[in-house]
Design a protein around this nucleic acid. Sequence first.
DNA 1: TCTAAGGCTTCCAGTCACTGGAAGGTCAAG
DNA 2: CTTGACCTTCCAGTGACTGGAAGCCTTAGA
Lengths: 133, 133
Amino acid sequence: MNIGEVAERSGIPTKTIRYYEDIGFLHPKRNENGYRIFEDTELHKLTFIGRARSLGFNIEECRALLALYEDKDRGSADVKKIAQQHVKEIEDKIADLIAMRDTLTHLINACAGDHRPDCPILDNLSDGKTKEA
Amino acid sequence: MNIGEVAERSGIPTKTIRYYEDIGFLHPKRNENGYRIFEDTELHKLTFIGRARSLGFNIEECRALLALYEDKDRGSADVKKIAQQHVKEIEDKIADLIAMRDTLTHLINACAGDHRPDCPILDNLSDGKTKEA
DNA sequence: TCTAAGGCTTCCAGTCACTGGAAGGTCAAG
DNA sequence: CTTGACCTTCCAGTGACTGGAAGCCTTAGA
């Protein structure tokens, strides 16, 4: 397979595939003409990485998962640990975002949204206090 | 005030303050020795930006809010619109993260987490399917 | 008066995970 | 033989900082 076909089948852009080669995720062979040739195993790897990325694992986490994936002797405990750590991080982010949303929603509700310049949102950004109606 | 004091009072690092000057948020005057001198208005602006950033507004949104903040004739509707748009984006992110978390939690629950190599998490990353017990 | 510490300056480079674009080689169809 | 799609490499940019180097300025203490 050439890079274009792999890109289509894995759903990962060619640019990104080359980048993944740069950072050592893949080592495709080369044709006489310099083109990369991908085997099925490379396609699988790419798909694997794509799924992990879409679950929010960062590149280093993907590298760790990939190493575990390729290590036939790893225990599932290692993988579970990475995943659990990751769930914790996701939950922290969710909590942060919910706090943001609630604060903003609160401010929006306090804001008349008309042509007068009086604006609780800006007031809050300016002095950190929310005025109640 | 010198930059160090402003940094302490606004909670924004000196590096970041200089960066904010670079991108045109501030225009502090300079001393004979080249040091930046900050007035109270600059401190207020920085605090304003800091709060907006902590609410997840990006730099361009901050720029817009700052412009509205400094425009005495703006209607609160303009500000409300930016904030509402932002709440939408936050809610999208929350939904994404919840989906990620649920998928991962599901996989973690299916994973024995022992020393055997059989691992539903890797299996899923590899083939996109979750095996039920 | 010298020195040392700390604060200030600028500029350059790195972060993360790509993404865009330029310049040019290769290949298959018409 | 040309056209267009595909491939290659390399360089630069994204967002929002952050780190570090090199060097000037100020202040306190010996």
